Structures are given as structure tokens and as C-alpha cells.
Simulated scan of single mutants.
Amino acid sequence: MKLARLGDGAEIFHTLQGEGVSMGAPAVFVRLSLCNLHCVWCDTDHTWNFEGTPWKHEKDAVAGYVKHKKEDVIIEMSVGEIAEVVRGYGCRRVILTGGEPLLQEAGLVELMAALREDGAEWFFEVETNGTKMPGEGFVSAISQMNVSAKLANSGMAEALRVKPEVLRGLVETGKVWFKYVVQGEKDVQEVLGLVDAHGIPMDRVILMPEGRTVEELDKSARWLAERCRDLGVRFSDRLHVRLWGDRRGV
């Protein structure tokens, strides 16, 4: 499997879930490489913004930022090797993230099965962008799907980021939460339009402020929290940003 590289190994780390309905829960993150989208504000651009690709990113404006060499940011590991690292942390909540994890769906099904061989209770979450519908084997194995659905503020064309048949299928699993990164009221209205158009239950919608720093989060956090209250949807902060900033492996 292709994982994001961090230092001399893979980006597998023990931390707290930073956002969504499980925010604050201890978890082991397994960050896979590769993605089928390329959002301009993506905070894991090392999983897709490789040398030779045409994608734009807001970090292009930062002095010294360059696209990533694949060999510097990707490491290949077997399912058994990944399972051994995960077990070593002694935490049974595992977050499968990316990139887009479902690009390597078959390997993830194997990984969940391998970890469950010890007979203990495991809780698996996947962070996915909602453009790929997983098969029955994955849906059966996964405990919770956190769909980080993308809005127009991602810079992605609607035809690439909104797949109506996938959204409907994900809702039908009963295991999905929809997370949206919001910058302003225009984004809130876009979310409400998607909810109405695709049958997304309001009680499964989570809105989060956009930002890489505490200061950026605070620009809209209080306003967004009040909008969530009035709309009857969940608000999620971005705990990892508040605790550790824009860093990897936390």
C-alpha cells in the first residue's frame, strides 16, 4: 500500500481525533497517499501535489514552496507491516485518512480484517471526500465514515466533487457523517442546497471553520457556531490546529 512518508517511516501516529463527531477521542491515524481531488486549501497536499502535476494550491504564494517529489513523500508498506505499527500504539480507534483512502480500498479491507484477528473490539473510521462509493466488504467492515465533502471554495469543479449517486449510497449505509469546511454564509447556503438536492439528513451534517491557524479559525468560529445552533446542525472546531498548529503527525 502507498502511505504518506513522514521522516524515515510512514505517517502513522497516535493522537486525538481533531474534528467531526469523534473530536477529542484518542486514535491512531493511518495516512494514505494519493487523491482524486486537489483542493486549493488542502492541508495534506503532500499526498497529491507532486512534481509535474498542473494543480494549483494556495501555498504557491508562499516563498520557497515547491511541489513534492514522489519518492520523498510516499512509502510502500504491506498490510501486515501497517497492522504491526498500528497495534504497537495500543489504541483500538483507527482513522484511515489521506489523500483519498478509498483509492486503496482493497488494502484497507485487508488491514481491518488483519487487526480484528486478535478478537478484540476495534473502531475504524475513514475520512473520505464522498466521490467514491465503497463496496459491500468495506461498508461492512468500517465503523464510521466521515465524508469531508467539498464545496466551491475548494477550487474543484462541481462535476468532480459532487457525485449524486455516491452521496445517496453513502447516506443509505447509515454510517456516514458529512463535514463541510465553511468560510462564510455563501458556503452555508451551498451546504443547504446540497442537503436538499441529495437527501442528506441534517442531523448528520457538521460545519467547520476553515483555517490553518488559531487566528484564522477564530475569524469565523463564533459566527459559524451560532449559525449551526440556529440551523440545528453540529459545529466542529479543528482541535488539532488549536493544539499543534499546521503540523504533520499530530
Rank of each mutant, 00 (worst) to 15 (best):
N129H: 11
A61T: 06
S33I: 13
G7T: 10
L115S: 08
C228H: 03
V233I: 07
L243E: 05
R247V: 09
E71S: 14
G135N: 08
I74E: 11
K2P: 05
G88Y: 05
G90L: 13
H198M: 00
L194D: 01
R31P: 12
F29P: 03
K179M: 04
G169I: 01
Q144N: 14
E172N: 11
F178V: 01
R93K: 14
A159P: 02
G80N: 11
R204Q: 06
A113R: 14
V233N: 03
E226P: 00
C228Y: 02
V195H: 04
V62M: 13
A152I: 04
A149M: 10
E121Y: 15
I142T: 03
R238G: 03
G184M: 07
A157M: 06
M133I: 06
A113S: 09
K69G: 12
A120M: 09
A120H: 09
R168Y: 01
K59L: 15
V109A: 12
L160K: 09
S140W: 00
E190G: 11
L115D: 02
D45C: 13
G52E: 08
E19V: 00
F178M: 04
K186T: 14
S220K: 07
P201M: 07
G24E: 09
H68E: 08
E136V: 08
N36G: 11
R87E: 11
C91E: 12
